[in-house]
């Protein structure tokens, strides 16, 4: 009943799909920035010698890692505006959800990265008279980020894929747009295969460069 593969449908759909892709990229980009920022904070907290702080960070990470992302998206999309008492709009709701959720995953990567830098360097830093903050900022973190860059990139690719879950709240990312057109024109075969190919190519480029980074960039 669906007949042959209809390229004309895709051609007509391209402008809308492009809009969707822009949304996806925007969400991914902002969520990576936020996620890495809060992930770093959490990682530093987890490594803190002050027990309550490290306990809080560990609980946060374990808690978010135990939840499905869809549930987190629902929480933030439906309930956060209610909790705050003022609306923040769909985009910001899911952006916050992604940042909070991904921070837990980035935290573990960054923590491993920091721990990969030898302890002796911390001592060397303090011996030179640097404060803890200076040691972290000037010595440890730059090396740690270099070590973990490939893994960070891999996690970011996973997140790029995860943004497709905004489908559940109807925000128009790339996949939701493809789904809308698939339904409107009754061409699910063309649209979903096209979406899969686009995601595949982008993610393959990403994961290949992550592997290349791993080979050439490791200290």
């Amino acid at each position: 009943m669906f007949g042959g593969f209809d390229y004309a449908v895709l051609e007509r759909a391209l402008p809308l799909l492009w809009q969707g892709m822009l949304f996806t990229l925007q969400l991914t980009g902002l969520a990576i920035c936020g996620g890495v920022f809060f992930g770093t904070l959490l990682a530093l907290m987890r490594l803190s010698p002050f027990r309550p702080v490290s306990f809080f960070a560990a609980s946060y990470v374990n808690f978010f890692r135990s939840l499905p992302l869809i549930l987190v998206i629902f929480w933030f999309y439906f309930l956060v505006p209610k909790m705050l008492g003022w609306p923040i709009g769909g985009f910001y709701s899911v952006l916050i959800a992604f940042v909070m959720f991904e921070a837990a995953y980035y935290c573990e990567i960054i923590r491993a990265g920091i721990q990969s830098v030898t302890r002796a360097q911390v001592h060397a830093g303090s011996a030179l008279g640097l404060t803890y903050g200076q040691t972290m900022r000037l010595i440890i973190l730059p090396q740690a980020f270099r070590n973990m860059l490939p893994v960070l990139l891999t996690q970011s690719i996973i997140m790029f894929q995860d943004t497709s879950l905004v489908y559940v709240v109807g925000l128009k990312d790339f996949l939701t747009t493809a789904d809308l057109i698939a339904n409107r024109d009754n061409r699910p075969v063309e649209l979903f295969i096209f979406a899969a190919v686009v995601y595949f190519v982008l993610c393959l480029i990403g994961s290949t460069s992550a592997r290349r980074l791993q080979r050439t960039y490791a200290i």
Partner: peptide
């Protein structure tokens, strides 16, 4: 390299 939701669809 294909998002799970796309695979599901």
């Amino acid at each position: 390299n294909i998002p799970l939701l796309v695979q599901l669809f």
